[in-house]
Design a protein around this nucleic acid. Structure first.
Lengths: 313, 313
DNA sequence: TTGTATGCGTTATCAC
DNA sequence: GTGATAACGCATACAA
C-alpha cells in the first residue's frame, strides 16, 4: 500500500467509503487470502491476577497492530490445552501464544509443525518450540529461599497450592537451596492441588504450624497464600517477622501496603505479555529472527515480613 | 441436524473425517451463511478481579455452545467503547455483551439499531437496550450504609476510587441513606478518579482520617480499598471495629479470611456472566422472549469489621 | 430424500 | 500499471 496518493485524493476516497457505508468483510478477506490476522492466546486462568496482567500486556501491545486476539483458558489442564490447540490451529492463526513449557506430547507435536510463529510465555528453558519469553521459576525460588536463610531463619517451610508445573519448579528451587544449607525438612512442606486462595493460605499455614512447631519462615507459592498466612499468624498472635518470616511470589500490588509489608518476588507479567506480542508480530512479519529466548528476569522485594536479621528494613 | 443416523454409521463418518484430516473453514462458513458464531464482549478492565470473574462465567457458559467470544476492554472509556462497538458491529456478531448502562449517545444508537441481541450486564434499570442482567448498585450501597448505622456508627464516611458510573451510584446510595438518618457529612467523603488499589485505599483513608477525626466508619467503593483501609488502621493502631468500622464492596474471597474479617456486599459476578450468555443464546436462537431484565441481587455479608454493636458476630 | 449449481466479498492472477 | 475474473470453502436453494 504505497502512500503515493495525494492527501486530497485520499480524503476524497475516505469520504466515498464513508458515504457508501462500506465495511470490509473479514470473513471474505481471510477466505480469499487464506491468511488471518488472528493471534491465539491460551492461558490457564482468566481470574488469576497474574494471567490477567499478562493479558493486559497482550491487549495493550496489540492495540497498535491490526491483529485480533482469540482467547481461551485451559484451566490448568494439558488435555484441554491440547484440544484448544487443535481448534486454534484449524483457524490457521497468524501466531500463537501459549503458557509454559509443559505441553502434552501431542500438543508439542502440533506446535512444532504449526505453520505460524509460536511464543511460549511465563517460563524459559533451552528447548523452545519457537519463541520464548519468561523467567526461571526455579532460580526465583532459590533467591527467595536464600534471602530467608540470610535473614537468619532456620526452620524453613513451603506452602504451595495448585501445584502446576511452575509451582513445582518453585518447590524444587526451595528444596535445593534449603537442602544445600542443611535446612530442608519434608515435614515443613505442605502442598495441595486445590486452587490457590487467601483462605487456603490461612488453612494450610494452620495445618503446617500445628504439625511443625519448629517452623519459623514460610516461602509461599504465591501472594494470595502469603496474605492468608499473615492473617492466620495475626489471629494466632504469632509475631511477624519476629517469630515467623513470610515471603510471597509475584509481588502483587497489595504486598507493599500490607501491615507488615510482605516480602515477595517481583515478576513482570505485563511486560511478558507485551514482549510476547512484539516478538510474535516481528516473526509474523519476518522482521525478526526466530528461535529467540528472552529472559525477562525477576527481582526479590525485601520487606518487613522477613526482616528478622535486619530491623532496618 | 437430525440424529437419525445409526451410531455405527456415525462413527464411520467420524473416522472418515479424521482420516481425511478435514477441518471446517469458519471463514467460508460465515461468508456463505452470512452469519457468525461470534459473541462480542466489552468490559472496562481485564485485570479487575470483578470483571475477570464475569469473564469466567461467560467463558464457562459458552463452552457448551459453539459460539466464539471476541473480547475487548474499554478501559473505562465511553469513547473507546464506542469505537469498539463500531468494529464489533461491523463483524455482524451473533450477539453482544456490554458493561453497564452508561453508553455514549452514539453507542446507544448503534446498539438500538443493531441486528443482534444485546445484553447489558452489571447493572439494571428500566430502560434496557434489549436484555439486561445485573443488580442495583444504588440499593446495595443503601443496604450497606444502613448496616453501618444499625451497628451504631455515627461518623459515616465514604472512600471511592475510579468513580465510574457504578461507583457514583454507590456514592449516591450512601449519600441518600446517610442523609436520611441525618448522618451525612461531605467532609467525610473522599473520592478520586485514579484506579483503585489497596495502596490507594490506605492513602485515601490516611488523608480522610486526618481531615475528619470524627470518622468512625467507612463504606468503601470496593474491597481493595477496604483492605487498604484496614492495613492503614492497623499501622495507626486504630482498633477495628471498636474505633473504626469498615465495609467493602463485592466480597472478594479474601474478605472473609482477613483479620478481622471484613464486612462486604456480596455480588454475583460469575453468575452474571453465565446468565448473560444464557439469555443471549436463547435470544439468538429465538427460544426466549426478549426485553427481559433480570435482577440478580446482592447480599450484605456482615463480619467482625463492623461489629461495633453486636460483639457476637 | 440426495445431488448439484450458484453466490457470499475479497484477494490474487492473469491478460491487457 | 489497470481492469476483468478465477479461486477461496462452505451454505443454500433448487432440481432431480
Amino acid at each position: 500500500m504505497p502512500d503515493k496518493v495525494s492527501p486530497r485524493l485520499r480524503e476524497e476516497i475516505a469520504r466515498a467509503i464513508d458515504d457508501l457505508g462500506y465495511v470490509p468483510n473479514p470473513a471474505a478477506r481471510t477466505l480469499a487470502s487464506s491468511r488471518t490476522n488472528v493471534i491465539g492466546v491460551i492461558i490457564p486462568s482468566v481470574t488469576n491476577n497474574v494471567f490477567a496482567a499478562v493479558l493486559l500486556g497482550i491487549y495493550t501491545a496489540l492495540e497498535s497492530t491490526d491483529y485480533d486476539i482469540q482467547l481461551a483458558n485451559s484451566r490448568y489442564s494439558a488435555l484441554r490445552e491440547e484440544s484448544l490447540l487443535k481448534v486454534f490451529l484449524g483457524q490457521k492463526p497468524a501466531g500463537l501464544i501459549v503458557t509454559g513449557i509443559d505441553q502434552s506430547e501431542k500438543s508439542r507435536e502440533l506446535l512444532e509443525k504449526a505453520a505460524c510463529p509460536i511464543v511460549q510465555i511465563m517460563e524459559i528453558d533451552d528447548n523452545p518450540v519457537d519463541l520464548m519469553v519468561g523467567f526461571s521459576h526455579y532460580e526465583a525460588a532459590c533467591v527467595a529461599t536464600r534471602h530467608l536463610i540470610e535473614q537468619g531463619y532456620r526452620g524453613l517451610g513451603f506452602i504451595g497450592a495448585r501445584m502446576d508445573p511452575r509451582s513445582q519448579r518453585r518447590l524444587r528451587g526451595f528444596h535445593d537451596t534449603a537442602s544445600g544449607a542443611g535446612l530442608f525438612s519434608e515435614n515443613r512442606v505442605i502442598t495441595t492441588t486445590a486452587a490457590s486462595s487467601v483462605t487456603l493460605g490461612a488453612q494450610l499455614f494452620a495445618e503446617l504450624m500445628d504439625r511443625a512447631p519448629d517452623l519459623d519462615a514460610v516461602f509461599c507459592n504465591n501472594d494470595d497464600l502469603a496474605l492468608g498466612v499473615m492473617f492466620e499468624a495475626q489471629r494466632r498472635r504469632i509475631p511477624v517477622p519476629g517469630r515467623l518470616g513470610i515471603c510471597g511470589f509475584n509481588d502483587l500490588e497489595m504486598m507493599a501496603t500490607a501491615e507488615p509489608p510482605i516480602t515477595s518476588v517481583r515478576t513482570y507479567r505485563y511486560e511478558m505479555g507485551r514482549h510476547a506480542v512484539n516478538m510474535l508480530v516481528e516473526a509474523i512479519e519476518g522482521t525478526g529472527g526466530d528461535g529467540a529466548v528472552v529472559d525477562i528476569g525477576f527481582e526479590i522485594r525485601k520487606r518487613r515480613s522477613t526482616s528478622l536479621g535486619s530491623p532496618g528494613l
